[in-house]
Design a protein around this nucleic acid. Sequence first.
DNA 1: AGAATAGTGTCTTTGAGACAATATGCG
DNA 2: CGCATATTGTCTCAAAGACACTATTCT
Lengths: 295, 295
Amino acid sequence: MADRRGEDAFLAAYDPRAFAPIAVTVDVVALTLRQGALHVLLVRRGAAPYENAWALPGGFVQAGRESLDEAAARELAEETGLDAGGMGRVHLEQLGSYGRPDRDPRMHVVSVAYLAFAPDLPEAMAGSDAAAAAWVPVDVLAPRGNPETATGRPMEQGRPAGIHGGGSGRRSEDADPGADHPCTGLAFDHGTILAEGLDRARAKIEYTPLATAFLEEEFTITELRSVYEAVWGRALHAGNFHRKVLSVPGFVESTGATAGRGGSRGGPRARLYRAGDARLLHPALLRPDREDSVR
Amino acid sequence: MADRRGEDAFLAAYDPRAFAPIAVTVDVVALTLRQGALHVLLVRRGAAPYENAWALPGGFVQAGRESLDEAAARELAEETGLDAGGMGRVHLEQLGSYGRPDRDPRMHVVSVAYLAFAPDLPEAMAGSDAAAAAWVPVDVLAPRGNPETATGRPMEQGRPAGIHGGGSGRRSEDADPGADHPCTGLAFDHGTILAEGLDRARAKIEYTPLATAFLEEEFTITELRSVYEAVWGRALHAGNFHRKVLSVPGFVESTGATAGRGGSRGGPRARLYRAGDARLLHPALLRPDREDSVR
DNA sequence: AGAATAGTGTCTTTGAGACAATATGCG
DNA sequence: CGCATATTGTCTCAAAGACACTATTCT
């Protein structure tokens, strides 16, 4: 106890009632593959603000009762109807936090966003606060063509001098809302969050084996390639992809079995693989021709 | 207005006073290079809990008045004594959020952590709540040798079945506290936050030009190499590094000038460069022999 | 003078990608 | 049967790393 007055001041500062309060929520960008296309889980809001608008599933963190990871898992489970067993094959990681004071019209709400990769799941079921829930194809929401977005990482640019908020890095919650991402129509800043989740997903499957999280436990190399093609939005060379995947140590391991039937329009039966024990791909599967895009 | 009762329930859920409150803070892992060694900015706590323990600089987000990025910049400026001009050359990006309910003994506090890269700064000055502030060499706090930590990314491992919290990814705030990072002695979970900040810094300079943020506006290739050597903790081949840096488009651009004097123990005067306009390095400067370390 | 350093040249190995070839099943 | 597909082979080019070499400047 160095200084009694200092401690009092400190504890006063810790009393949340001495300040205007901040609410904490989690929002989840849950991605899956359906019929070869990347889909995101959205809910239709049942109340103001943004009533009837589509939004990312999410909700309040239960103070004192759960961690952020647990809150995100709970919210995702509520919306997908999955139990602990079904969640076992879902990859969930933190994406970033969003805390602009004006992002929610009612009060200052800090949202911790999560990114989830899930295998093809049954239809979504609306949770408590939502009027509906559905898997929506992402290319409807975030059309390609914006080079900044398409190449993977949001950039700070044309910023006024000063702090490099978010820098040449992953996040930039202070980004000019006028020059926002093309994801329009989502409630709050969920369009931005979705865009950053997609960027992260596209980058992440380059150097981790997480693309396998979109597939069943056993899969063919062609199915794995279709994941990359859906997430990156471009066709890949089948032969080179095949050899490359098998050459990365720990990416996939053979099950010895072969698929029940050949390709949809003919061809030999493909061999089956399961995810290997690697947590990082080395060497990585770099995206083709990002050109000099991001200079 | 779909359902009046639903809206009432929703608004009630939004009233923070209907729930136990959660406080929101920002904490900053500020890194700099001093005498060729990587240092982190720490403050000595002036009040309980963890009184007299070292901690990351940080503080409360001012509800309704600032974004998370702004709060982090403000806290960093308070501790470093930098004005807006001095902060102009500091890179600041969000690292992740930490919200285990037991991470602060007094109440549920969600901390949004930031990572800062700064050029060599004058001595730190203690801010309001701190008894002292100092730049501390990181290898004192986080000795190398833990392969998980040293190779760059924290892994989830030995998790009980269920959600892959943090997955093979960047964060894992639910990681077993028993098997925590070797950063001991810091208040709260700041040892974990610091370790993840170091991991991120080591990974980030691979594929971004952010290593230049540790240097003055004009620098030599050798100085740039010393940044990589300090952050990665290993010697690099001078000749290959030199050629590699110059071959990556947009990484550095020549100023035409040469350094005032040669190397510290002899040698020709080095040419001076400044940071180029690239935001991503392509191809990247991959860390040497991460072996098969992370499998 | 001696030693360390800046910068460049050369060689080998690895990996990425273009392209070709072969075999296998579906329609 | 005809065609799409799975898988493997070959070739070329770029890049990483090991090593060598020269010129320069500090002590």
